[in-house]
C-alpha cells in the first residue's frame, strides 16, 4: 500500500508516523504538503498528530479548510484509505469525514500517558492484525481528546459497528477510570461507514519498537502494509 503523510503547518508527529510506516512496510511514505491537490497513486493518506495552525480557533478547524483536504475528501469518496491520528482525527471530524467532535479533556489538562485500547472489531484493514476484544497499549498526548457526539450519532455508531477502539483497563474492561479524557462511551477511535477511514486519538505510531517501550502499535501498521 502506497502511503502519503499530509503535512499541515504546525503538525509535529509526521516523523514518528513516517518511521512506523517505513518500519513495517519497508517503504518511506510520500510527504504531501497542505497546498498539494494531486494525490494520484497513493492508497493511504495519513493525517498525523500535532498542532496544525497552533490549534488556534479549534483543533483542526483551519487545516480542515486546506486545499489538500478537497483531495483527501475525493480520495475517501473513491474508497481510498485515510488514517487520522490525534490532530489528524480532529481534522477529519472538522472536515466532516467522521462524525462528532473532540472537546477539551474533561480535566482541562493536557494528558501525556499510556492508555489501553480495546479493539472493537478486527475485520477492517486497520485492525486485521489484532483480535477482536484484544487490548493494546498506546501513548496519548493531547489536550482535546474528549470525543463528543449527540446521542443519536453515538447510537448510530454503535449500531453500525463503527466504534474502532475504546479506552479500557489493561484487562479490557471499559470503565470510567480508563477514560481519562472523558470521551463519550469511552470512544478512542471511530470508522467511517465504509470502514476505510479511521480516526483515533492515541498514538500507535509511537509504540512500534521494543526500545521505546513496546510494539503494541505495530500490528496496525503491519496490517496496512499488507493490505
Amino acid at each position: 500500500m502506497k502511503a502519503g503523510i499530509v503535512l499541515f503547518p504546525g503538525i509535529n508527529r509526521e516523523r514518528d508516523m513516517a518511521i512506523a510506516l517505513e518500519r513495517t512496510s519497508g517503504h518511506a511514505p510520500r510527504m504531501v504538503w497542505h497546498t498539494e491537490t494531486d494525490l494520484a497513486g497513493l492508497d493511504l493518506l495519513v493525517l498525523p498528530g500535532g498542532f496544525s495552525y497552533g490549534d488556534y480557533l479549534r483543533c483542526g478547524a483551519m487545516a480542515a479548510q486546506s486545499p489538500v483536504m478537497r483531495a483527501v475528501r475525493d480520495h475517501a469518496a473513491r474508497g481510498g484509505y485515510v488514517l487520522g491520528v490525534c490532530n489528524g482525527f480532529q481534522i477529519l471530524t472538522e472536515a466532516g469525514l467522521l462524525p462528532g467532535a473532540l472537546l477539551r479533556n474533561a480535566g482541562l489538562r493536557f494528558i501525556s500517558a499510556d492508555c489501553h485500547l480495546r479493539v472493537e472489531r478486527a475485520d477492517t484493514v486497520f485492525a486485521a492484525r489484532y483480535q477482536r476484544g484484544a487490548v493494546f497499549r498506546a501513548p496519548m498526548a493531547h489536550g482535546d481528546g474528549n470525543y463528543f457526539a449527540d446521542e443519536e450519532t453515538l447510537d448510530r455508531l454503535e449500531d453500525e459497528g463503527l466504534v474502532a477502539f475504546r479506552y479500557a483497563t489493561p484487562a479490557g474492561k471499559v470503565l470510567p477510570e480508563a477514560n481519562r479524557n472523558g470521551s463519550a462511551r469511552n470512544i478512542a477511535g471511530i470508522y467511517a461507514p465504509n470502514l476505510r477511514v479511521l480516526g483515533l486519538m492515541p498514538h500507535p505510531e509511537d509504540l512500534v519498537d521494543p526500545l521505546m517501550g513496546g510494539e503494541d502499535g505495530k500490528p496496525l501498521f503491519e496490517a496496512l502494509a499488507a493490505a
Partner: peptide, 28 residues
C-alpha cells in the same frame, strides 16, 4: 507534572521521565 508534558513526540524516547536516573533519547 510530567503527564502534562508530551514525552514521546518524535518517537525516540527510550526512557521517559521517572524510568531511569537520566532521560534517554535515541538519535534517529
Amino acid at each position: 507534572i510530567w503527564d502534562q508534558y508530551d514525552a514521546t513526540v518524535g518517537g525516540q524516547t527510550v526512557k521517559r521521565p521517572g524510568a531511569a536516573d537520566a532521560a534517554i533519547v535515541k538519535i534517529e
